[in-house]
């Protein structure tokens, strides 16, 4: 399955069905991040239930410097 992750096209294995499994495969496990799928915020507790489809756009955001 092909996903757009933070603006970059990424291929994930066919076993990936949910946002949680995608984050794991993409190396975001154990990171403090907030997520959105196709522009909609997905809370951490919903990631196991959030299914993904080919072409979905993921935003994975982390704390960063700000003014």
């Amino acid at each position: 399955m092909r996903l757009v992750v933070n603006g970059n096209s990424r291929e994930v294995s066919t076993e990936v069905r949910t946002l949680a499994s995608a984050l794991n495969e993409l190396g975001f496990s154990n990171m403090i991040v907030a997520t959105a799928v196709n522009g909609v915020f997905v809370p951490a507790q919903e990631r196991e239930r959030q299914t993904l489809a080919d072409g979905d756009q993921l935003e994975v955001l982390a704390p960063m410097q700000g003014g």
Binding site: N6, G27, M31, V33, V60, L61, A62, M64, G66
Partner: peptide, 13 residues
């Protein structure tokens, strides 16, 4: 603070 895309590689966030 703010929030920006996490690369996942350098773990800067």
């Amino acid at each position: 603070v703010s929030l920006r895309r996490e690369s996942g590689a350098d773990r800067s966030g």
